[in-house]
């Protein structure tokens, strides 16, 4: 084989490998024309050439290229593996498809009309969960900054206190406390004998009290039994008194109502009047007897009396 033929075949094969390799890696059809559409977006955060394009959850293509459009928006060209093309009312949305992965999602329309290759579809940017998380993060970041500012202020105040003589005060307090502790230690060391003695006495006293309680245990029990018995008798007595009170109440009620002799006697004024009259007559009789004893004694004989 001639050198020219060898070279030609080598270069030809290299070109074929390069072209097919590029189309294979770019996920464009190896043969035939690519179905390409484009959309304009205000922003394309996280997108690169080659980023997957999804439709109804499956990957249908990749981003071919991106660049600025005439109206300062970002124009994104998308290669799609859709043999039947896209419905005319389809649209492209940039949104998070996983936690950290942003992609273009094609929302398929319902129109029976199909878009030819090279058409424009409307593009939207959807912040989604990532946007919400970002805004939350910004909010939290603000709060954290605020807290840090406050903490900083507190620290500077503490620092100020320490610098403005506060350190001396704290040192004095600590040295005073130290002194007090030393004094307490010394006192405890000096009086340890007495303290131990007091503890021994207290222990003895407690033991005595315990013994006393044990010795007089029966007496105390008897006393308690007597008290219980007295208490029971008191209960009975209280019951009797209650009954008596009831009876008395009944009697007084009857007296008040004028029932019975006593009631009549108290309530009937005629008895009083009779008694009053009787008293008056008796007075009168006694006066008569005093004034005229003969009238009453003339019929009396001494012997009859004695």
């Amino acid at each position: 084989m001639r050198n020219e033929v060898k070279v030609a075949i080598t270069i030809f094969i290299a070109i074929i490998v390069a072209v097919f390799g590029y189309r294979f890696m770019s996920e464009t059809p190896l043969f035939g024309q690519t179905y390409q559409v484009y959309a304009d977006f205000d922003r394309v955060d996280g997108l690169l050439s080659g980023t997957p394009v999804y439709m109804q959850g499956i990957k249908v293509g990749t981003i071919a290229s991106m660049g600025f459009a005439d109206n300062d928006s970002i124009r994104v060209y998308v290669n799609l593996n859709l043999p039947n093309g896209l419905p005319a009312d389809s649209r492209a949305v940039i949104r998070s498809v996983q936690i950290l992965e942003t992609a273009i999602v094609i929302e398929r329309g319902t129109s029976p009309e199909r878009l030819p290759s090279g058409s424009k579809i409307p593009g939207f940017y959807d912040e989604g969960i990532l946007g919400a998380v970002t805004s939350l993060g910004e909010e939290i970041g603000g709060n954290v900054n605020e807290s840090l500012d406050k903490l900083n202020s507190v620290f500077s105040q503490v620092d100020g206190i320490l610098v403005d003589g506060g350190r001396d005060d704290i040192q004095q307090t600590l040295s005073g406390l130290n002194l007090t502790i030393n004094q307490i230690e010394r006192t405890l060391a000096a009086r340890s004998g007495e303290i131990e003695e007091a503890i021994v006495h207290l222990r003895n006293t407690l033991a005595n009290a315990e013994n006393l309680t044990a010795d007089e245990d029966e007496s105390i029990r008897n006393m308690i039994r007597n008290l219980e018995s007295a208490s029971a008798r008191l209960d009975t007595l209280t019951g009797s008194m209650d009954e008596m009170t009831g009876d008395l109440t009944e009697v007084i009620r009857k007296i008040n109502e004028g029932e019975g002799s006593l009631g009549l006697m108290i309530n009937d004024p005629s008895l009083y009047q009779n008694l009053d009259s009787l008293s008056y007559n008796l007075n009168k009789l006694i006066e008569d007897v005093n004034e005229n004893p003969r009238d009453f004694l003339k019929h009396l004989r001494l012997f009859s009396v004695f």
Partner: peptide
């Protein structure tokens, strides 16, 4: 991974 980061400019 290879396709995701396969760019024409690299070639």
């Amino acid at each position: 991974g290879g396709r995701e980061y396969f760019f024409a400019w690299d070639i």
